[in-house]
Design a protein around this nucleic acid. Sequence first.
DNA 1: GCAGCGGCTTGCGCTAAATCAAAGCAGAGA
DNA 2: TCTCTGCTTTGATTTAGCGCAAGCCGCTGC
Lengths: 254, 254
Amino acid sequence: MRDVPFARRPITINPVNSPTSGQCEDCDARHVGLCDALSDEDIGFLARVAQRVVIPAGKTFIEEGDPASHFYDVNQGNVRVFKSLADGRRQVTGFMGVGDFLGLAVSAQYAFSAEAITDVNLCRFERAPLLQVFAEFPALERKLLDVATHEMVIAQEQMLLLGRKTAIERVTSFLMSWLERSEPFPVGASKPAAAKLSLPMSRTDLADYLGLTIETVSRSFSQLKRDGLIAFTDVHEVTLLKPQRVAALTAGDR
Amino acid sequence: MRDVPFARRPITINPVNSPTSGQCEDCDARHVGLCDALSDEDIGFLARVAQRVVIPAGKTFIEEGDPASHFYDVNQGNVRVFKSLADGRRQVTGFMGVGDFLGLAVSAQYAFSAEAITDVNLCRFERAPLLQVFAEFPALERKLLDVATHEMVIAQEQMLLLGRKTAIERVTSFLMSWLERSEPFPVGASKPAAAKLSLPMSRTDLADYLGLTIETVSRSFSQLKRDGLIAFTDVHEVTLLKPQRVAALTAGDR
DNA sequence: GCAGCGGCTTGCGCTAAATCAAAGCAGAGA
DNA sequence: TCTCTGCTTTGATTTAGCGCAAGCCGCTGC
């Protein structure tokens, strides 16, 4: 949303190329999407039902209630997934980033909307053919089940946050989980002394994710600043000065 | 599920009752568990990894953080699924009833606890062997993916409720969704003039499910009573006198 | 029958967060 | 450079829902 003169740039769609190479070059080693469930030579089959899509920041590319035609792998950028009420109240159910899979919470229609926060690169799979491919490669289906399982865990965690945590607990919980996502390989038990985090989403997104108002989110951040636990270099870049003490405010599980 | 229930073969591992009859009388025609993904003769294979379990009301049978050893199908009674914080705050993430599947929101450990609300009959499947069976019967895995998908939709709906709805919207939303679960076959578009609902869970459960206090739940019910929209014959039995008008208070989706 | 107990309801302040309002602030365009 | 615009922060006030406390209601056991 920030660097957005291109809010009207079109969505581009391309075939996934180089099935011959056996590599989907959009998917890097840390990709947790569909690709890493397959061997190199099998990825070519996946490419048969895949397209690459580029979404400009701010664009809605999944609309709640529309027929659920595609799955998506996020290859670049960040996405907000949300539901909304008739009067405009909005609940962001998740932020998706590189390697995340999109399109499981679905019956015949999408149960959610999705918008690009930054410019976003996606791999798009048509649902029907993909379900065919499952028959050939059960590993894919297993992968999807694993993804769904993991999403359920996160969803329940979020319900706990939304139903029972205070404002500061919500904000610190978010910071710690976002830290974890940003550092997929924590390496050892020791938390670093400080960690810099990019927060691509707006305060409004954050508020709608945490079930708060932007003012309350802002005030919570300010309090954490005052207490010397975090610092902002930019509105969208926070440093956890005392990760331990931030973590202590999350009212962790159990 | 189909007319023919769980097993044409005896349940071999822990036959609680009537294996000789060749029928799992616990699974009635409306069962939406694992069984209905399989043909009659294949169900026998499922039985290889199944046990029947009876849980008395109030008993905790899944403890958050314990190694995730089993899946469960609910065959009788009601279950509350929840997470809790160190200080005792609790979030009920769902109420499970006949036909519901339990145990997906799991990594190596259970991410939730589960307790019997009423006396409960379960079919229990060991995870490891069940995953083996998947190889033989991919339909099972597909079924599980469908279940997970459906759970995701419900979870997101609940996040919207917890993050953005008012007390009365939460209570009426619950009533309408519980009504839907209780009447799996709505038959035609017309809502009945009145519908009687059994609410097996306590007010505390309800409060912890809706992210409210018992007092607020009670007050919301009282207001709906005052407005002539519902009536209680018993604390655990409510009648929706004006389902339409109750539905109008839910702040429905989109 | 009735005393005790656990769960539910009701009344009454109280408070965390929402709402309303007014500045800051930084990037985009002229 | 300066202004405009959209986002963010901060302050003042309001309020929906909380927390406490008292009373109620229906069961259980004596």
